[in-house]
Simulated scan of single mutants.
Amino acid sequence: MKAVPKVNTDGLYIEDTIVDDAFSGVVPFYVEIEAQAPTDPDESEQEPTPEDEQPEETLEPVIAGYLVGIAVTPGLYRPRFDLAAWEAYQDDLQAAESDYRQAYDEWQAQPEEERGEPPAYVAPEMPALWIEGLTPEEIEEITRPQPQEPTEVDLLKERLAAAEARNEQLAEESTINQFALMELHMMILELKEGGGTA
């Protein structure tokens, strides 16, 4: 068993799925069609008579996506399997095989002493089938450095700094109040002394 990519009908990667080790190529998978219950409750209770029975319509299966036997190219942000390139590659393979069979048949039709080397089959080069599914703008957006959320330690440091600043402010206010209180006390003493001699 091995994992292969599962893509939607646009070729965009969905997830991996487990298949047999011998699996290769590209194979469609279909939307599961659920049997519909009768809409009229009376219909479900009645047994259909043979003359009432109509052949069931065979619904055309709907392709939901594809299982792809080709590994995803690493480094893609949103892998997309190029289904059109795959189909073109399959056409090229068939054409190359047809050309080879024709050349081989022509070679074999020649007398043995005139044949020479048999033709060699040359498969077409497989194109890059996995491509980037995001636009350059979308890639730039997701790769842009994001502002980091402050950690709990950072938040505690900020709270400590704010508390220390508030503590200094209160200490200054307390010192000012003490001086004001001392001045007031001095004034009261002066008034008492000044008032007692008069």
Rank of each mutant, 00 (worst) to 15 (best):
D40L: 01
L59W: 02
E141I: 03
A163R: 05
A22H: 13
F81R: 01
A3D: 12
I70Y: 08
V153H: 10
P28M: 03
M187K: 12
W130P: 04
M186T: 04
W86S: 01
T151Q: 05
L129W: 00
P136H: 08
A71V: 07
A64T: 02
L76E: 08
Y77F: 11
G65W: 03
M182R: 15
I33D: 02
L134W: 12
E112F: 09
A163E: 13
Q146M: 11
P147N: 06
D82V: 03
V72P: 02
Y89W: 13
E113A: 14
P124H: 04
L67N: 00
E60I: 07
G194H: 13
M182G: 06
Q36W: 02
Y30G: 03
D91Y: 02
S44K: 15
P119L: 02
E183Q: 13
E32L: 11
Y100A: 04
M182H: 10
I139E: 00
T135A: 06
V122M: 09
E172V: 06
I176V: 12
P50F: 11
D99N: 15
Y100F: 15
Y121V: 02
R159E: 12
L12M: 14
V27I: 09
I18F: 10
P79Q: 00
R101L: 08
A162G: 02
D21G: 07
L156G: 01
Y89V: 07
A103H: 04
A103P: 04
G116S: 08
Y13M: 11
G69Q: 09
E51N: 06
F23L: 08
D154A: 11
G133I: 00
A88P: 01
R166H: 09
D154H: 06
T58P: 02
M182I: 15
E47M: 13
P5R: 04
E87M: 09
P150N: 05
Q54C: 05
Y77G: 00
P55C: 01
I188M: 12
M187S: 13
V26C: 10
I176W: 06
D42P: 00
G75H: 08
Q36V: 09
